[in-house]
Design a binder for these strands. Structure first.
Lengths: 212, 212
DNA sequence: ACATATTTTAATCAAATGATTAAAATATTC
DNA sequence: GAATATTTTAATCATTTGATTAAAATATGT
């Protein structure tokens, strides 16, 4: 008889689930969903990529949507989770926050360059699914915002948040264009990114100083 | 007997094609494709949105893919066509180019806020389809790049192109997040955009001056 | 080794979806 | 107004696709 196992009752018995089927499917799902997006990804693609039968996918994860949510939650945690604690760290200066975000974010996205386009375009195409799932409330009144307001009360603080994220994330948004046109090859791209870890903090601080 | 009309042999006879069926379908296709992306858009959605029969869509445009290409070419022309002539205008200063792009691009994208995410995520999900269709070759050795190189030979000129586009386009990339979280409502968003038309040129020039 | 639980498979279903066909409706020309 | 061309429709196909079922294979506990 069929029996769907819960993630709750995990790993009883002596058997080690040795990066087994469940994780193989999740891995495959990560790759296929990230490459094609939810709509274009077929469960058969994922099954084949994982080297397993199609029924197994539904046995372990009930549905395409459930499996997708797992991947999406993971990616969103990486995307938003990286900046959140830094923005709210009351122990460091504004300059330190900026430098830290630029460096951490570039490192994270270098490993997973299409996280931003993946998340943002899924949100755009299906906004309803993400209501109450975006942890951006804490960003509005973050310590970062307070520090910016103190330094530049004449401008809306969101400008500087957008600028910091834009300068950091936008290269990855444009990466497909760079790659396809040969405008920047892989090595050149990463060289620019390393340069930007140092440059972005300088640029941001210059913007913060620049009085009207 | 069926007879597919070519766009070539357009408008013979006295009949004015008065924004008729063909354009109604194209309009609907623009809306549906832009909202859902290629994979999630169903031809039935488009037909319904256009208020016509499904068969009519295939009668006029042969296939979903052909219809999509039409829309995509249009959007890409808007997205890339706006910057291209400005970047290559040998008659104006670097500062003027920057100001012009910031203003024109913000105006264009204000009208069509999800062009960037639409185009860039379709490219990412299906790069093959866009090979040789990205007119970015002319950007590499544009007049803009030459002007930047002259002013800042110490840094790779692509940095400043990315910065200009990033500061301008990134707010639109993040718009779905802003809207859903109430971080910036529609009015606040547009207020910030108007401010950025003035601010971005100042910021860019500050970056160009900032020596290491 | 036996009984039981878990994992995997092959076969199949039902719905969705892109596309086609043949005929009806409408316009255009002479 | 008949003849011809164009536009539109309803019905239907063939494939794709997410999901299920029942049975086989494998592991696990005693």
């Amino acid at each position: 008889m069929l029996c769907f196992h819960d993630t709750d009752m995990a790993k009883k018995k002596t058997k080690v689930p040795d990066l087994s089927t469940e994780e193989k499917i999740k891995d495959a799902a990560r790759r296929v969903f990230m490459k094609k997006g939810y709509a274009a990804a077929r469960t058969r693609d994922i099954a084949e990529e994982a080297g397993i039968n199609l029924a197994l996918l539904n046995y372990y994860f009930r549905s395409k949507e459930k499996l997708f949510e797992l991947v999406m939650v993971e990616k969103m945690a990486a995307f938003f989770g990286t900046i959140h604690p830094i923005l709210n760290d009351t122990g460091i200066s504004l300059e330190a926050k900026i430098a830290s975000i630029a460096e951490k974010y570039i490192d994270l996205l270098s490993q997973n360059p299409d996280i931003p386009l993946f998340i943002l375009s899924e949100i755009r195409m299906n906004p309803d699914q993400f209501i109450n799932k975006l942890p951006v409330a804490k960003v509005l009144d973050s310590h970062f915002i307070k520090q910016v307001q103190e330094k530049r009360p004449d401008l809306h603080p969101s400008h500087f948040l957008i600028n910091l994220l834009g300068l950091t994330v936008f290269p990855f948004i444009m990466k497909p264009v760079f790659q396809m046109t040969g405008m920047l090859n892989e090595k050149a791209f990463h060289d620019r990114l390393e340069e930007r870890k140092v440059l972005i903090p300088k640029w941001l601080n210059a913007m913060l100083k620049l009085k009207p």
